[in-house]
Computed example of a mutant assay.
Amino acid sequence: MNIERYQDALHPLLAPLGALYSGAMRLRRAAYASGLLPSWRAAAPTVSVGNIGWGGTGKTPITDWLLGWAEQRGLAPLVLTRGYGARPASYPHLVRPGHLAEEAGDEPLMLCRRHPGAAIVVDPARSRAGRWAEERLKPGVVILDDGFQHLAVRRDVNLVLLKPADLGAGWNRVIPAGSWREGGSALEQADAFLIKISERSFEALLPRLERRLRPLGRPVFSFEIAPQGLVRVLDGEQRPNFSQQPYLLVTGVGDPAQVERTASRYLGHGPREHLIYPDHHAYTRTDVKIIEQTAEKRHCAHVLCTPKDAVKLGPMARDNFWTFDLDVRFGPAWRGHGLEGARFDAWWEARFEKVRAGLEKHRKTPDNSETARQGAEESENFGKEK
């Protein structure tokens, strides 16, 4: 029995526990909002990329896109991340392209190798890492990875990623009764929602958006993660596809079924076999031997894995190990009146400039004036479209 079936079967017993947990998280948010619990604010515009529940919602691809956007504008981006599974010698840990996945964490290392000019800092205490990085690196934009519940760092924009299931049977089902880390009231702190979904499926989701999200008055943006080609893990050689040759799919991610659908759609045929490992799995030489043997047994010319798996396989990979070259594509948006033309990239550009202008205005205003107090309040409320 998987965890969702377990939660469904025991929902009458688990729901009261979920309500207690939801209440505790609501009190925690109130404690940070009132200043009872301390929080740190960066000098640069700060955006949180997070979600309401667990599971693969696409946070890392959105962070990756934001890094590319910032680099194109010369903004010196900084990512503050817990670094799931990372075991550095000390904290804060500035990730370098030559580090190992077990030292830096798989996703931080992947982001660092894709954006070597960005600062990716691993530390469970992200306010500590932020102070450290701001003093030494002077970032132009700060990105909180998986930051919606990490309230010790204040943010100007909250991007909350949802799964389609969050808007259906999973709505407001809080741990342990469901996958949500907080109750539905927390969504009032979002500035925008993003959903990883095809354009056609997004249109079919409109009735749920109307029912669940209209009262919040926030825009909802769709996006897809689309392969642009294939990259050999060992040397970065690129090729468009496998020319219809059979392949073995290997994944250690939160939603392996979605990866299989993406591979099948892009390559025009599914894998001969799909080896599924747990999310954030630390590959060993024994794993690699099993992968090789399975590919040989199934007569697969190639082994395909995700970019997150590729950084963990590293030098253990063989010549026939490939990964996706992925790109984020933004689709239509919803603002309570059907599909609209303005997509996330245009919305984000305008919102960032508004936040940056507000912070600049606040810095130029004397701190001991009433205007300064009002300016500080305005900067706190940037991004809160009502």
Rank of each mutant, 00 (worst) to 15 (best):
K354T: 15
A44W: 03
D156H: 15
P88G: 04
L111R: 05
H337A: 13
I120V: 14
A86V: 05
K384P: 01
T251F: 00
L66S: 06
Q149I: 04
L216T: 00
R131L: 13
L100P: 00
E349Q: 12
F382H: 15
S90Y: 11
L304N: 02
P315M: 14
R73W: 13
A125L: 15
Q189V: 01
P38H: 10
G331S: 09
E377H: 09
P278E: 02
K354H: 12
Q149M: 06
E353I: 01
A24W: 15
T286N: 11
P164K: 02
Y6N: 04
R318L: 04
L14I: 11
L144S: 05
K138W: 09
P256H: 00
A357V: 02
G341P: 07
K386H: 14
L36N: 05
L249S: 02
A76H: 12
G56D: 00
E103P: 04
V288H: 13
A333V: 02
G383W: 03
H280F: 00
Y277V: 00
A118I: 06
I195V: 14
V160E: 00
A301T: 05
G105K: 06
Q258H: 11
C300G: 07
L216Q: 00
L205A: 05
T63N: 03
R335M: 09
Q374W: 14
A24D: 06
A317G: 12
A76F: 06
A89D: 14
R261Q: 15
G252L: 01
D123P: 13
P97E: 09
N320W: 15
P176L: 08
P271E: 01
A44T: 11
R87T: 08
L213K: 01
P215H: 12
Y266I: 00
T63A: 08
R363A: 15
I225M: 05
R28P: 07
A119L: 03
S48W: 10
H99P: 04
Q149E: 09
R329S: 10
A342C: 12
H150G: 04
V49G: 06
E135D: 14
K289C: 05
H302G: 06
W54Q: 07
G18W: 13
R113N: 03
T46Q: 12
D367W: 10
G375I: 01
Y247L: 07
L187W: 00
E378K: 14
E203P: 01
P246M: 08
F321N: 08
D106Q: 08
P124H: 14
D191A: 03
E292G: 04
R128I: 08
P38L: 10
